[in-house]
Amino acid sequence: MSNYQKIFKRAAVDRMRDQLRAGITLENYFKEFESVDEADCLPSTIEVRAPRPVLSAPQDDPVATDLENAIVLHGYYPELDETQASDPRLWAYLSHVDFRAYTMARWGLDGSYADLNDESKQKAINYVLEHWFTSGNDRDLRRHAIARLWWAAHLTRAPWEKDPEFFGHLVQKDPYHYTKILLQTQDIYQQVLERAMGRSDRILISVLDYLGNHAEFAQSRAKIRSLMKELNLAYGTRKLITLNPEQLAKLVEKTAEEVSASITEADSEVEAES
């Protein structure tokens, strides 16, 4: 049965954020259920079908299900366009209402409200603002409990369908092949998407393709971080986005090889210990 996704009204999101900032509603973020005033909601034009999926976050390792959750969520909202998917009213509603249990489990607050002092209250408020709300920029979308999953899948799903001229040679059986690489570790997600270059699907997929073909490199946080840093530096004087697929792949490979050579075994051991 199809229906239309509810979202919060802008005024409601503004008020919720204000009340949280003032600490008035912080206690509610320790509760599994919070009633919603229908007057604060409105139907969107986003068509959804019942039943809504359940996102899982096992207590012992909530990060482990990021990939399956991303695929399930993207499959549930396949027609969402980029403009809709950057609307703060949608994501606030999903984290507070439709996927509240998941958001609590994956990005909830530890302990109890009664244990918080002034300093930890402020930290808790900032943490909730970061993972339960967005404000219209991609940094917030990368960190929001639900938005980050949808965008991870959206940015990486079957690039050969979106841009066959550029990615035609990368066709895979699994449309989420590159989503799997992106969400393989938290480090890959953070290091690759936190850089402004990650906004270019051409650079993003080229880097993920390299990581997918070089498992050892992809396991090293230091190497991934250095690779992205070096590519970012190069971007300052060279518009990598204008390169053709072959040129871009060669550049990523050459930069990664230089990074591998510069990061010594001792560095890797320090990294492993940390």
Partner: peptide, 25 residues
């Protein structure tokens, strides 16, 4: 920055016309 969008267009003409889907930005 609102929609993870970064792209480039190239031309060798001094006057150009480039089209972006409205829902990407």
């Amino acid at each position: 920055r609102g929609t993870f969008y970064r792209t480039s267009f190239s031309s060798r003409e001094t006057t150009s016309r480039f089209v972006i889907p409205a829902n990407r930005i």
